[in-house]
Amino acid sequence: MAREGRAGPRRRPVEPFLWLLFSGGGMAAAVLVPVLVLLFGVVFPLAGGPPYDHLRAVAAHPLTRVALLGLAVLAFFHWAHRFRFAVEHGLGLGRLDRLIAPLCYGAALAGSAAAAHVLFLTL
């Protein structure tokens, strides 16, 4: 039945965990991201942002760091999952799943590491 080039049963064990990360990221991003983009991407650049000391105090609070790391990890895996299927289905590259999937989730993993570095080692 299975056609050549298909990933076969290999895809089974990790797929549910990737889907849970994707779903968690979708929910976290839906609730948090629009307001953050609105404020930091549009309103503050046009109308002036909060004073430096206040922003630093908010950002450096342990709860903020944990929340932002959680958002970053989930949002990156959300992107990885959707981008993987958008490329595989949208460009007809499903046979390259063995290549595309590791690249996407690998990028999400690298992004998560970078987020942890920024939030817990530089701040």
Binding site: R6, A7, G8, P9, R10, R11, R12, E15, P16, R82
Partner: peptide, 11 residues
């Protein structure tokens, strides 16, 4: 359902 070709292929 959870094998390759099952629900995880649906977007």
């Amino acid at each position: 359902l959870a094998a390759a070709g099952g629900v995880w292929d649906c977007t």
